[in-house]
Design a protein around this nucleic acid. Structure first.
Lengths: 245, 245
DNA sequence: CGATTACTTGAGCGAGGTCAACGACGGTGG
DNA sequence: CCACCGTCGTTGACCTCGCTCAAGTAATCG
């Protein structure tokens, strides 16, 4: 059932193999490496499990480690001086967290669920980068993808109505699920209304009202807590694109 | 007067030297190269001048070239299906435009003023990257900085009031000017109210009203069109941070 | 099973959007 | 040199979307 059960391998190697298997464009740091390289990384990397709501790192911490989220969900947040927070992104199984060339992390990384992580120290990473130059190119690819996603989010927050933002968010969950190659009729949505609001530049009440509206229109279902099913994908897309009116 | 007058060098080399001179953290692609490498790039790169409002490239164009903005101002924009546009960033002299590992550019790049650009084909760039590995690291640095700036912009658009956004924008102009090592009492602001609004997720009327309010409070002056002087920096900072009330 | 946190729903209000009119500026052609 | 026009900026009046405040319900966890 769980694809991460191979007992002989570290989680990072397992994650990379999962990536290979699903042929994903995006997931995983080590996708381009051969098994010899994976073995080497396996011997270097620390695997660990952390509980829900744990902080992987905080904004301002020295950026000495890089993580792969093997299993679970995380949010990346920035804090305003007045205490309000902005979620700059969510992370899913297979995603890399905390890579930066800056001296300190520019945001908090906090887990939404109990998660399995694979940890690599900066020194180890730099050594690997030297040994496997394709990895450096991979880092750049990941950074460009992240940048493009953040720009898209900027468009959503800056120019779309409240319901359009929530619709766009739901669609991005589908995309993330597709990336992980999971059957996507019912999506996991472990983030709270407040998390979603802080991601979309809305209040939690507005997010709640939007989701209720979608439910009443029969566009979505929420069979259990923290699960959504998108029933009318087309309607949500039209709303997100502004192609409805 | 103009620091770009050295007649024997290509613009790119000149730009790099300017970067060296000002010791900037951010500006310029070729900062880490020695003069031999600069000479080599000089022989490769195409210099060009383009008029105001020209498109350097459009969203969806094959991403076959990379540009350095030697002199002038540009905006990077994304278009929504319904025609609304979001400015995802402004670019200033010394900045690199259009580097991506994606097959096509993910946004439009449009000049705000007549500008001098330095153009490098993807093939040439890749060859340079192979010859000067430090350049690859530099590209990653630039990407990380851009990502961090975009996340900051996301916080501004998602969580700040209209006036706080405009204040934050003005402060970012100071920062950009500082980066270019220009005396910053009076800033160049070649973007229209509409450009600023599309950057901040506001309407042009709201931007105009905010600037008028700042002027009436004596916080800024606009001696001529497309120039601002920040008179009360502290007040603007407090407003941007939300530390005023 | 009580306490806490998450979610929903309602009522009222205000920041900012919309629509409209007007003035300033800069280029263009007579 | 001036009349004309298009773009840009300002200001006002009005209205709406989403925020705020508040109360109540549902889920979760010791």
């Amino acid at each position: 059932m769980n694809p991460f059960d191979a007992p002989r391998q570290t989680e990072l190697a397992a994650a990379a193999q999962v990536c290979d298997r699903c042929g994903s464009r995006v997931a995983g740091l080590c996708q381009p490496l051969d098994s010899a390289a994976l073995d080497e990384i396996s011997s270097e990397a620390q695997q660990m499990t952390m509980p829900a709501h744990a902080a992987v790192f905080r904004e301002g911490d020295p950026a000495g480690r890089i993580f792969t989220l093997v299993d679970g969900f995380a949010k990346l947040t920035r804090l305003l001086p007045d205490g309000k927070q902005q979620v700059v992104g969510f992370r899913f199984a297979g995603d890399v967290i905390g890579y930066t060339t800056l001296p300190t992390y520019p945001f908090d990384a906090e887990l939404l669920t109990e998660s399995r992580l694979c940890r690599l120290d900066r020194g180890q990473l730099d050594a690997l980068l030297r040994r496997y130059p394709t990895l450096e190119r991979r880092m750049l690819d990941l950074c460009v993808q992240e940048l493009t996603a953040t720009q898209e989010q900027l468009v959503t927050v800056g120019r779309r109505s409240a319901e359009a933002r929530v619709a766009a968010f739901l669609l991005s969950l589908v995309e993330a699920s597709r990336r992980r190659n999971r059957p996507c009729s019912v999506l996991e949505m472990p983030m709270t209304r407040s998390d979603i609001a802080d991601f979309l530049g809305l209040t939690l009440e507005t997010v709640s009202r939007s989701l209720t509206a979608f439910r009443k229109r029969g566009w979505i279902r929420e069979p259990v807590h923290h699960r959504v099913e998108l029933v009318n994908f087309a309607a949500l897309s039209a709303l997100a694109e502004g192609t409805d009116d």
